[in-house]
């Protein structure tokens, strides 16, 4: 009987979600012509907005680059503080808890708060990405530090290497590929996430998407969507190349 409980709970959750929300499946069935109309208005994509779109994409890229830079700067000391092999428990435990808390706050919520704090434009976007990404990146850095094999470091200590020499020749060569790989991965995530920041006024291409959809200019929205997808695929390909290089 005990083994049935998870199944009962899941079934109850699904029934509750389906029954209590205002979801009318008949609407979906009847919306065929509307969807066809919507899609037909997206094609052909309007390419006249290339210049404006280019500016939006460039701003998004800048937000992702500067946000990543900000989170790297914060993650170095926080990563060291969160590493259990080099920081005492009274430092790494609360640091890890704080990083988990940061990760738990959705980016869009952080961005809205930053817009409230510093006004519209790319700056709140950069701050939001910096804050949000640090929760993950500092944890990755701490794991990179904790993952360093002690053998080579002990060997250099035995040779008579100073603390800095051990860091430079024993610890850094082990950590560097992991840190570079994780930073590039986080940059890719930052870029994806910064695409939507414009929706809450935090700069970038997201603002254009929102404007075009709300003003029913679906052909322009289609152009932006295709451009975003192309950019994300490009960055992912680049990321895969870099990851192979760092492995």
């Amino acid at each position: 009987m005990r083994s049935l409980w998870p199944a009962i709970l899941i079934a109850a959750a699904v029934l509750w979600a389906g029954a209590s929300a205002d979801i009318d499946l008949s609407k979906l069935a009847a919306s065929g012509p509307r969807m066809a109309d919507f899609l037909s208005r997206m094609f052909p994509p309007d390419l006249s907005i290339m210049r404006e779109m280019g500016r939006g994409l460039a701003e998004t890229l800048r937000i992702a680059i500067l946000g990543t830079l900000g989170s790297v700067i914060l993650s170095v000391p926080l990563g060291i503080m969160a590493a259990e092999t080099i920081s005492p428990a009274w430092v790494f435990r609360p640091t890890r808890a704080a990083l988990a808390l940061i990760r738990a706050i959705p980016l869009i919520l952080v961005a809205m708060l930053m817009v409230g704090a510093v006004g519209l434009g790319p700056l709140p976007g950069i701050l939001a990405i910096t804050f949000h990404a640090t929760g993950m990146l500092a944890k990755f850095y701490a794991e990179a530090i904790d993952g360093v094999a002690p053998g080579p470091v002990l060997a250099l200590d035995s040779i008579g290497a100073t603390r800095l020499q051990r860091l430079r020749f024993g610890i850094w060569p082990q950590m560097a590929p992991v840190i570079l790989r994780d930073t590039v991965f986080r940059f890719e995530l930052n870029l994806r996430e910064s695409l939507i920041l414009g929706i809450v006024g935090a700069g970038g291409i997201g603002l254009s998407v929102q404007t075009y959809v709300r003003s029913f200019q679906y052909d322009k929205a289609a152009t932006v969507t295709i451009a975003i997808a192309a950019l994300v695929v490009l960055i992912e390909l680049l990321n895969n190349l870099l990851r192979k290089r760092f492995s």
Partner: peptide, 12 residues
């Protein structure tokens, strides 16, 4: 000291 596990830096 020649270590049993050698203590080499793998990526170097």
């Amino acid at each position: 000291f020649i270590f049993q596990d050698l203590g080499l830096v793998d990526r170097a």
